[in-house]
Simulated assay, not measured.
Amino acid sequence: MVAAGTELTGDIELKDNFHLDGKMQGNINARGDVTIGQSGRFQGDVKAKRVLVSGHMDGKVDADRLEIVASGQVSGDIKVRELVIEPGGQFVGSSHVKKHDTPRLVQDNSDAESSAAESVAAPRNASTTPVE
């Protein structure tokens, strides 16, 4: 997590989730989810399983799912399997929808300890049906 008021420049590669409330310029490669919080400002490329934007993002996205909530703004090129834009959310750029036979970007579950820590840090709905 990068807190509000923090500025970060550089590239990040991680197995877990990432949450940005500050400012970042660089690239993120995550096997988990990337969240740009409402106060978050990100410039660069993101490759992740799921990207949730409620702040501002400028760059490329390669993900299984991109969600832009009401306060979110995304500009750039996106390559996703699913795109969700809530009323009020903004997207400016080009999009490419991945085919369903394209392999999903999945987390590495070989490390049970890391997986257990992640589920505590980022609880998910018990339902297996996608929420839109």
Rank of each mutant, 00 (worst) to 15 (best):
F18C: 13
H19T: 11
V120F: 05
D33Q: 14
M24Y: 10
S39F: 07
P103F: 04
K98Y: 08
I85D: 12
D45E: 07
E13W: 01
L14G: 05
N17T: 03
Q107Y: 06
I12A: 07
H96Q: 15
G22D: 10
V92M: 09
D111C: 00
G22K: 06
K98E: 13
T9A: 10
D64K: 03
L52Q: 01
V69D: 09
V53M: 00
R31F: 08
S95W: 04
T102I: 12
E113S: 08
L52D: 01
D77H: 13
T35Y: 00
G55R: 06
L14T: 14
P103W: 05
Q43Y: 08
A30E: 04
S95Q: 10
I28Q: 00
S114L: 14
E82I: 02
K23P: 00
S115V: 13
D11G: 10
G44E: 03
V51A: 01
V97S: 07
L83F: 14
G93M: 11
G40Y: 04
G32Q: 05
R65N: 12
G44R: 08
A63C: 00
S110V: 02
D21Q: 13
A48Y: 03
A112H: 01
H19I: 06
G22H: 07
A117V: 04
E7W: 03
G22V: 11
R65D: 07
A70Q: 05
D33L: 11
I78F: 13
G10Q: 09
D101H: 12
Q43P: 04
D16W: 00
Q38I: 10
H96P: 00
T9P: 00
L20M: 09
D111G: 05
N29T: 13
A63M: 04
H19C: 09
V53S: 02
A112W: 02
Q43T: 15
E118V: 06
S54G: 05
Q43K: 15
D45P: 02
E13I: 12
V61I: 15
V53K: 04
G32N: 06
G44S: 02
E82T: 05
R31D: 15
E86L: 11
F91H: 12
K98A: 13
N109Q: 07
D62W: 12
T102A: 15
V84G: 10
N109K: 01
V97M: 06
K23M: 10
R104V: 03
D16S: 10
Q38P: 12
L14N: 07
R81D: 01
G76C: 13
K47C: 05
K98S: 08
K98L: 15
